[in-house]
Amino acid sequence: MFQWLNKLEVAILCLLLVSMTLLVFIEVVMRFGFNQGLIWAEEATLYLGAWLVLFGASYGVKTGAHIGVDAFVKTLPSLYQRLVALLTIALCLVYCGLFIYGGWIYLSKLKMIGLEMEDLPIPKWQATSILVIGFILLAIRFIQAAIQLIKGETNTLQFANEAKESMSLAKEGSKD
């Protein structure tokens, strides 16, 4: 079950990035090759981008992709490291909570006014719903990280830095 959900999450993430790229590419080809403009493409790309970021933020927590500065925390004894990490996650949950609450009010307002997107015939609140969905997913991932900490599976938040990200790409490159 979880295996299946994980695969779905990855697939959606890849699909969002690929469809954005293709949409912009097709727009260029249409304009340069066929002298035609795709009126709705700009708005669609922008919203796909928003979905990519807000949907992907939680996956970033799961895979430790978000940059953090752990220089200070690493100097602490291990017990304190865990306590600081728990405090940090609690604060991260406050962050999620505030946005879920604010996002909910915002979405309700959008739904109440009944606005549509500018170029696409989609209600704006639906296109914006990822705001609340994304922060709920983010909160779930933070709770999972907290459970791991309490169980003692890890000592720190496993947030990597961009360096590690680039490194893993580089290793792929230099393998052959």
């Binding site: 993430l13 890849c14 970021v53 970033g60 895979t63 961009e162």
Partner: peptide, 12 residues
Amino acid sequence: LEAAKVSVMLLF
């Protein structure tokens, strides 16, 4: 996936 991850991290 790697690109999506790094992009999300930066854009977030």
